[in-house]
Design a protein around this nucleic acid. Structure first.
Lengths: 351, 351
DNA sequence: GCAGCCTAGGAGAGCGCTCTCCAAGCTCTA
DNA sequence: TAGAGCTTGGAGAGCGCTCTCCTAGGCTGC
């Protein structure tokens, strides 16, 4: 009978058993040596390590995880609304600075802890359910949640499942979950103060989607601060955090309020779009119209003129989220906590 | 004796055994139903699914993987030179458009296949060895390699280990590995043609690090094309693909060749930096100095003026890499193959 | 010199699943 | 009606590891 089976059977890798045989000890002893647990006779210790080298043994993480219930993996879940799988939005989201900065910040901590990051995108309710099921089984030791939709059931599902979790950005609905967030309202207030101090008279705002917390906080913080300084009314146009939407929003704002001499834009990407619209409209920045962005992403520095913006220390926040998660994985009894970062104003040329 | 042990034992989740008991069948039958394998009596089929619902059973992927040797995970390995773990470079790399575009492209395919992406960064030789060991054990079904150093041992290690792998960008040394690459030389030639056709006289180039293939191909492609059109000598300054290095390189070029009236910059990020340097030097773009970038990343559109650039369809390439990998995972006997994408010229305002 | 204690190493039972046998029951033809 | 040939479900052996017993042996103390 010939082997007509499809998949090629990989050659058998050395197992604990093999090492034990070579070393002339039991499987348990090899395991103890490898994991450095309990006192093993120094001589045997050496014999075992020698056998490991001789056989080329590498522990099988899967098998180990099955029994220890620890995987050395943290999941980064990007939770999105009901979107089709072939929606190009996600590709753009990943390419946006936001995502990269978060990943970079997370990895800076996880890497040193020898933990890998498993990226997952969930859109449908079914995907969410399956994800939580997998998490309960310890597919990952913990999860970092990047929640995009305003009223996302995922944070609640994850906490109910008892899976260690940390959100980046606070949940829209009150959920007892760990999170790391930015004082978005304070940041917006900083922008308002700066523009008013600059002597701007008619100050508009371009906001993000109204239903996400980070976005609405920026609007309310801005409005409150403006009101306190005598600007009871703020012309507002909303975009969706993309460059194109910022371009369109600026055009609209210019159409509705031709006398506008300053604008606070809720993120740098939209601010870059706004800059383009202003240039096309023949307005000079900052002389005719002052522009303040938000995030201090790479786009701020690349823009012409470089953007005055609100610094959002996303890398630090993500790193903190990773540390928080790791501590929760270590001690599951810890109560949920949150860390709020304070934004700062970075003054460049645009305002 | 009280339970003083540290970790809280998670409550026991229902297993196949439990479902089998509830359904009154054997474990094997439940497994068959769940995996839709073979014909099972329609009545039993229903009974089993009912029991699954009743118990809230979710298969344990870890246990399944241990026996099937399939994990439903693909690793994205960013291989870097000997760098310290706390080197901030990686954070910046992740935040750069390149990384995000690759991840976005990969996910667009993997997501639909229900495969998750595990991100790993390896710097030291020891990390590389451990990674390959884990991969041999089937920690991931396959691996996408993003190789940064010029002479990286990883591609060879991975192929030697018999792990399905696809590189994005060809390896510097000849290794029988699957890869997806861009015809970088053709792209550079496109830039040269365009600048010459525009009537530019003294055309310089800002290159990336000399030892990475993508970078050296752009240099050689540019030089060759220039020579063919009578420009035997090209002033060249090299950077490292960051915005700041582009800024510095442009200043240097301007200092060495004040009469330069065009520059081809090996990526958009550096081109943005070059734009800043030109602005500060009082040169108008494109009137005084024409600038052509490379990549067509988001930075190209955000720049002022928007960059004329060479389109690098990174998302498509990453998606193709994912498809290629998935097919190699399915059929491990397939011979290594490569796909080369053709770049195109995108004309905007800078040249 | 022997009970009692401590320590090091082995045996073996799982972790939760898949998958190969194998037996039982069925249909169908000679 | 018996035998071949098929379908269907169960038993049980792993996958590679950890970890809890348990035993054997060396040590101390009276």
């Amino acid at each position: 009978m010939t082997a007509t089976g499809g998949r090629v059977r990989a050659e058998r890798l050395p197992t604990l058993e093999d090492v034990a045989r070579v070393a002339g000890v039991s499987r348990a002893t090899v395991s103890r040596v490898i994991n450095g647990v309990r006192n093993v006779d120094p001589h045997l210790h050496e014999v075992v390590w020698h056998a490991v080298g001789q056989t080329g043994y590498v522990p099988n993480r899967l098998a180990r995880s099955l029994v220890t219930r620890r995987t050395g993996t943290v999941a980064l879940v990007v939770s999105d609304s009901e979107r089709h799988d072939d929606d190009p939005f996600m590709g753009r989201f990943c390419a946006a600075p936001y995502f990269g900065r978060v990943v970079g910040g997370l990895m800076s901590v996880l890497r040193q802890a020898g933990v890998q990051l498993a990226l997952q995108i969930v859109g449908t309710a079914e995907q969410r359910t399956r994800l939580v099921g997998d998490l309960r089984h310890g597919q990952a030791d913990g999860v970092i949640v990047l929640s995009l939709p305003a009223h996302d059931p995922l944070p609640r599902m994850v906490t109910d499942a008892g899976v260690p979790a940390v959100m980046i950005g606070r949940p829209a609905d009150p959920v007892p979950i760990n999170y790391v967030d930015l004082a978005n309202d304070t940041g917006a207030a900083l922008a308002a103060e700066h523009l008013i101090d600059r002597g701007c008279q008619l100050i508009g705002m371009i906001s993000g989607p109204v239903d996400v917390p980070a976005s609405s906080d920026r609007v309310s913080g801005f409005r409150r601060s403006m009101a306190r300084r005598g600007h009871g009314w703020v012309p507002l146009v909303s975009g969706n955090f993309t460059q194109e939407s910022g371009y369109a929003a600026m055009q609209k704002l210019l159409g509705e309020q031709p006398a506008v001499d300053a604008v606070f834009v809720a993120n740098d990407l939209m601010a870059v779009g706004a800059l383009t619209a202003l240039r096309e409209a023949g307005r000079r920045v900052p002389d005719d119209v002052a522009v303040v962005g938000f995030d201090d992403s790479s786009a701020a520095l690349a823009a012409a003129p470089p953007l005055t913006t609100i610094r959002h220390p996303l890398e630090d926040m993500a790193a903190e989220a990773a540390r928080l998660l790791l501590s929760r994985v270590e001690d599951r009894t810890m109560r949920p906590s949150s860390v709020i970062y304070e934004p700062t104003l970075v003054i460049r040329a645009s305002a």
